[in-house]
Simulated assay, not measured.
Amino acid sequence: MIEIIKYDGTFEGLLTSIFHIYEYKLEKVEIIKTEIASSTFFDSEEEIVTDAKKATRVWKGISKKISPEGKMKLYKTFLSEIPQMENTILGYIRRGLTSEKNIETDFTDQNVLLVDKIAKKVSREKHRMDAFVRFRLTQDGIYFATIEPDFNVLPLNAGHFKKRYADQKWLIFDLKRNYGIYYNLEKMETITLEFSSEINQKSQLQRYFTIDEMQFQELWGNYFKNSNIKSRKNMKLHIKHIPKRYWKYLSEKNC
């Protein structure tokens, strides 16, 4: 019989679940988010309450066998939100803690290989968000940007933008996951707000953004159009470096 371990979907919740598995020496287990769990007649279930202390113990404990780089790969795998990634992470940790050697480059192990592949994909998405995020100045004096990345990379992007825009108040909001990170010149905090999709519609911009900002966006768009040399246009190469799914973030593509 498989023991179903349900958790709240947070990274601390996942680590708490792993603590529970080791504490009770569970072997046949499957970790799954509570929101998508479905009961079966043959499986037993247990819902884990997130415990920050237990999560910290697990995260510190695996440092004995898994390097900081390996731990970051595990975190990126979690941020991927790929189905079953929880059990891939559990398998990776189990192998890492029982092996006498470092397992982080042992790609004969399917969990190690999968974590490495997923982490690379998440890293690429993170770097693209670093490059493609475009801020607009709101009427409240906050530089605001929306994103909808394939993976939940906003926690990875936050440090980059804090360093780059340390003297400005800014908010990056993930429309797909309905949360954002706000920087108030002193610290960053995670916030949730109700946003309408109309915030990115041209007809509604004056409700949210300053006149100067709208004029700047139009000026930038016109510059982008006029500076392009049609005879040298290579759309295939352009799309390779800036895939179409990122165009919605770019003000120069929406003027």
Rank of each mutant, 00 (worst) to 15 (best):
N157W: 00
P149A: 15
Q84L: 08
N152H: 13
F78Q: 07
E104T: 06
E252F: 08
S251W: 01
Y24H: 13
D174I: 15
N102W: 03
M214Q: 15
T108K: 11
F42L: 13
I21E: 04
I36Y: 02
E47H: 02
V115Y: 01
I142A: 06
A55S: 12
T192L: 07
S196P: 02
A158C: 14
W170F: 15
D130N: 10
F135T: 08
L154M: 07
N87S: 02
L114E: 11
R95K: 15
E69Y: 12
N178M: 01
K230A: 10
E218K: 14
Y182D: 05
E86C: 02
P68L: 15
N152G: 10
K54M: 05
P83H: 07
Q139S: 12
H127L: 14
D51N: 06
E198K: 15
E186C: 03
I239S: 00
E148G: 11
N178C: 01
D116K: 13
F11W: 03
N226K: 15
I21Q: 05
M235Y: 03
L114H: 08
A119Y: 01
L15F: 06
N226G: 10
K240R: 06
W247T: 14
K253C: 12
D167G: 03
V153E: 04
T56F: 01
A52C: 00
T16W: 02
M129A: 08
T192N: 07
S80D: 03
G91Q: 07
Y246A: 11
K253G: 04
E23Q: 09
D106R: 12
I21V: 15
N254P: 08
L97T: 10
K169C: 13
T105Y: 08
P243G: 01
Y92P: 03
M85G: 00
N178A: 02
K6Q: 11
N200L: 12
D150R: 14
K233C: 00
S44F: 08
E27V: 15
K76N: 04
K117F: 09
S39K: 14
M214P: 02
E104F: 01
A119E: 03
T34W: 00
M72T: 11
S227P: 02
E148R: 15
G13C: 06
N200G: 07
S99C: 05
H160C: 09
N184K: 10
I82R: 09
N152F: 07
D116Q: 12
L156Q: 09
E218W: 04
E69C: 10
S17D: 05
I172K: 13
G141M: 13
R232W: 00
E69L: 15
R124P: 00
I181G: 01
Q204F: 10
R95L: 14
I4S: 03
N254Q: 14
F144L: 11
G96P: 02
G61Q: 11
A145Q: 07
E35G: 06
I147S: 05
S63R: 15
